[in-house]
Simulated scan of single mutants.
Amino acid sequence: MIIRPATAADLPAIDQVFRTSFCDTFAHLYDPADLAAFLDGFTAATWQAEFDDPDYAFQVGEVGGKVVGYIKLGPNKLPHVEPGQLLELKQLYLLKEAQGTGLAHGLMNWALDEAKLRGARRMALSVWSENWRAQAFYDRYGFEDRGPVGFMVGNHRDEDRVWEAEL
């Protein structure tokens, strides 16, 4: 397993990991039209724009040359946290085959270190209110629940929870 900075050439693989992991975990919750509308928002151009923005940072995990997970940091857009010296963990996704391998921990440790290098003192994220596995993972890193936030998948509104940790 290798954890390394993402390159522009990794963006199609990152998109595939995102779509596969999101659908494997959550597709059963949504009307297919809502799921399709949500996924349609993730285009090659939007991935490229974030990748090119210096306020964002991507890291990938690969096995045998195949990207099996990634993490993305960026500017905070979440409520319930004080502004300033704060980064948002935007996405952390792994393919099923990479779950339980330690990759999530490796990516998370990189994200915490990267946030500190960028001058952040805190990190925020959102997680679905019923994703107990993810919540337990973030709890181990000292994240605390700060309150609800709506997360739209097409016309379907989920309740996510905003979590925050001191770095």
Rank of each mutant, 00 (worst) to 15 (best):
V17N: 14
F18N: 11
R19G: 13
D24S: 05
D24P: 03
F26G: 07
A27W: 06
A27F: 08
A27L: 12
L29A: 10
L29Q: 12
Y30P: 01
D31K: 09
P32Q: 11
A33Y: 01
L35A: 11
L35V: 05
F38E: 08
F38V: 07
L39R: 04
F42C: 00
A44V: 07
A45L: 08
T46R: 12
W47H: 14
W47L: 08
Q48V: 00
F51E: 03
D52G: 00
D53Y: 01
P54V: 03
Y56A: 01
A57Q: 04
A57C: 01
F58T: 01
Q59F: 12
V60D: 13
G61W: 10
G65W: 13
G65Y: 14
K66W: 04
K66Q: 14
K66F: 06
K66V: 14
V68A: 13
V68C: 15
I71S: 07
I71N: 11
L73I: 04
L73N: 08
L73W: 13
G74Y: 14
K77T: 09
K77L: 07
L78Y: 10
P79V: 03
P79C: 05
H80L: 05
H80C: 04
H80I: 05
V81T: 07
E82L: 08
E82C: 06
P83D: 03
P83R: 03
Q85T: 10
Q85R: 15
Q85Y: 11
L86E: 12
L86P: 12
L87Q: 12
K90S: 11
Q91L: 11
L94R: 04
L95M: 13
L95T: 13
K96P: 15
K96V: 03
E97S: 13
E97M: 08
E97V: 10
E97K: 04
A98Q: 05
G100L: 09
T101A: 07
T101M: 02
G102Y: 02
G102L: 06
L103P: 02
L103A: 12
H105I: 02
L107W: 01
N109Q: 13
N109A: 14
D113H: 13
K116A: 15
L117G: 14
L117V: 04
R118C: 10
G119F: 00
G119D: 02
A120S: 11
A120M: 03
A120P: 08
A120F: 00
R121Q: 09
R121C: 13
R122G: 00
M123Y: 01
L125C: 05
L125S: 05
L125K: 04
W128N: 12
E130M: 05
E130A: 06
W132M: 01
R133L: 10
R133Y: 07
R133I: 12
A134F: 00
A136S: 11
Y138G: 12
Y138A: 10
Y138I: 07
R140P: 00
Y141Q: 10
Y141K: 02
